[in-house]
Design a binder for these strands. Sequence first.
DNA 1: CATGGGATTGACT
DNA 2: GTCAATCCCATGC
Length: 194
Amino acid sequence: MKHSFYDRPVVEVARDLVGCVLSCGDCAGVIVETEAYHYSEPASHAFVGVTPRTRTLFGRPGLAYVYRSYGIHACFNAVCEPEGVGAAVLVRALQPICGLAEMRARRGVEDVRGLCSGPGKLTQALGIELGHNGLDLVRPGPIQIDERPAAWRAVSLLTDTRIGITKAAELPWRFCAQGSRFLSRPVSRRSVAA
DNA sequence: CATGGGATTGACT
DNA sequence: GTCAATCCCATGC
C-alpha cells in the first residue's frame, strides 16, 4: 500500500482497510474488522500526547504501531493522517488465507475461525511482536498490507461501536465485512451500513 | 517511587 | 455469565 493511502482521515483508512491483505512472513489474511483511533478522543492512546509509549503514533503515516495489551497480548495498528497528528487503525480480525499450519502451531488452536478472530489472536498467529513497533509498512519488510483481492473489491461494510473501551464508547468507528464469520465478535443489532 | 488501569483472552461457573 | 493473568507506562506524590 502506498504512503498516500495512510495519509488520510483515519476513519476513511479504517473503512478502506477492510478487504485488504495483511501479511507477516509466510502468513497472511484478509482484514475483516478494523477500528479507528484519533488523538482527539480519550479512547486513543494518542490522547495523552507524545510519550515514550505513543511516539510511533505521531510518526509518519504507514508506520506499524504495536503495543502490549493487558501485559500479555500485542495489538497491531497502522499509523494514519499526516505526521504529528496521532491517529491509527487497529486491525481486529483476519480471515486466514496463507500459512495456516504456522498459524495453528503458534496459536495452539485448530479451528480456522479461532486463529485470527481478535486483535491479540492475529498478532500471535502472524508472529507480530513488540519488536515490530515502528516498522514502515510502506517500504519492503516483514509486514505488508496489500490492496483488496478482486473478490473483496466490492465488500459490503457495517459500522458499529468499538469494542473493549470505556471512554468515547459511542463513536461508530468499528468497521466489519458484512457476513464475515471471522470477526472478533458479532456486530450488534445497532450496526449500520458504512 | 508507588499506584492503578487497560484498544484481551481463555478458563471456569 | 464471571474472573484472573501480567506488565508497561502514565500519573501523582
